[in-house]
Nucleic acid binder design. Structure first.
Lengths: 123, 123
DNA sequence: CCGAATCCAGAAGGATACTG
DNA sequence: CAGTATCCTTCTGGATTCGG
């Protein structure tokens, strides 16, 4: 998790806002949750959706999401190994939050895809 | 801003989620935005609502919010000095996001107010 | 009253290489 | 395939002090 985990009870009532942020903060948490909303994914399937994430970072982020009870990790005793990640009940309660974040990002695409498009056009 | 500002165009389409998070991330941004949704506030009025924020941090967070176009800063040429902070048009577009964060935090009050209440009861 | 300036510890995040 | 292990860089955020 970003910063120190769950140690801020000193704000109120806006505290709830920060409390929620504590969970989805972390460089890749938001995107991971977003992709898992679409369904169960394996480790490398998530990796493919996050082009520049390192295995180390992906592991830590997933472990934190697991520790917070948002993500379930299922290991299959097979060769080659297989691990599936999916949202828990609790994880799914974040859907409105992720949706709101996604919606705003799309509506205010003053960076990202739009910028990239302009660059291409300008080139 | 938290982390490196606005330099991640390498995820998609979940990118929008992270893009939004970039703006509201930062230790106090969420709460500040939340309180400003209720109306214009002066520097020390915000401070009073964030018991443990240092002036330095409050300043930097406000400056970033200002740079991102969410907050307007109005200086009055008076003695003693007076500075008012309010949301811009753009800042108000974040309302659904903040509301979603607040709603989840309230509904999942497994930390914060609820914990405090339990402690009191148990004592 | 509203900051700015300086200094600093610690955490988050990245590169790279290796393993059951 | 799904991670570990190690090392290292960066940046946030806090303490403190001073100024208009």
């Amino acid at each position: 998790m970003a910063r120190v985990r769950h140690d801020r009870l000193d704000c109120s009532p806006g505290c709830a806002v920060e409390a929620t942020l504590q969970f989805i903060d972390g460089k890749w948490k938001g995107v991971i949750l977003y992709h898992l909303l679409a369904g169960t994914l394996r480790f490398n399937e998530i990796r493919r959706r996050l082009p520049s994430v390192t295995p180390r970072m992906l592991t830590t982020q997933l472990r934190e999401l697991e520790a917070d009870g948002f993500v379930a990790r299922k290991v299959f005793a097979e060769v080659p190994p297989k691990v599936e990640y999916s949202l828990t009940e609790r994880g799914r309660t974040l859907e409105p939050v992720i949706s709101a974040l996604k919606a705003w990002g799309d509506a205010n695409a003053d960076l990202g895809p739009m910028r990239a498009l302009n660059d291409v056009v300008a080139a």
